[in-house]
Design a protein around this nucleic acid. Structure first.
Lengths: 131, 131
DNA sequence: CGGTATCCGAGAGGATACTG
DNA sequence: CAGTATCCTCTCGGATACCG
């Protein structure tokens, strides 16, 4: 009993959907870690080197979060002598490739648009916080 | 002199591109505001009502940030009696529709995957903080 | 209506050091 | 190598109040 404006319904749906996505992928590092993972970096220190600026503490935390969300699988190769640990992107992580591609494309175009060439402007940082 | 692994190059490119995107679109609210804008909400209080949970202070701040990035245009209709202010998505903001669609889709699928049905799990919040 | 000012807490995430 | 422990800063962003 309302037949609400479909515009509002669509908006609300979009709103919650991206909210969920942001909830899982948000933050400064998560997507970047996924990129490194699917690119082929699997070892802890390898990842830390590939993702410039991330600390061990944060990388560790984020990997756990990604694992909880089924995006990465931690595997310990106990059969190796100096125990090898690998973080492998799950098949599910593949579903993020499109997200990454689209977002990356946009970022690229945007940078070119804002500055004729590159580098970050002063504007609103890009942080995301709690729930 | 190096002919670096193309994999690494591609990864680095992706990395900085999404970093840039996150820089501009990151945070809890920016994308949601854009959604509301393109959906057709243009007035300040209208936006605040459409985007559940956002405070006036934050909405104001975020709108300024989006304006700096050319995603929204603030227009004052001085000819009206009780001065009307409108926030209009720029044409450029249209370029975000794809990002929003892809992200929204993923969020939707993910929610279904994690919980058989809906609602946010305990895992890593989805925060994003300043670069 | 369309905001701004102030106050404030939470927690992301950086730095450094240390362990197995 | 693969992390963990501590500490500490920073700023996001929530609440509330107020203004033209």
């Amino acid at each position: 009993m309302k037949n609400p404006d479909p515009r509002q319904v669509a908006c609300a749906v979009q709103l919650t959907a991206v909210e969920d996505a942001i909830y899982v992928l948000g933050g400064k590092w998560k997507l970047r870690i996924v990129i490194a993972l699917v690119t082929g970096y699997h070892r802890f220190n390898e990842l830390q080197r590939a993702i410039e600026g991330i600390s061990a503490r944060v990388l560790s935390t984020e990997l756990k979060s990604l694992e909880l969300n089924g995006l990465v699988k931690r595997e310990v190769k106990a059969d190796q002598i100096p125990v090898v640990v690998e973080y492998l992107p799950t098949e599910y992580a593949e579903s993020l490739k499109e997200v990454i591609a689209v977002l990356g494309n946009w970022g690229l175009k945007h940078k070119r648009k804002i500055t004729g060439k590159d580098a970050a402007p002063a504007p609103g940082k890009l942080t995301n916080k709690g729930t």
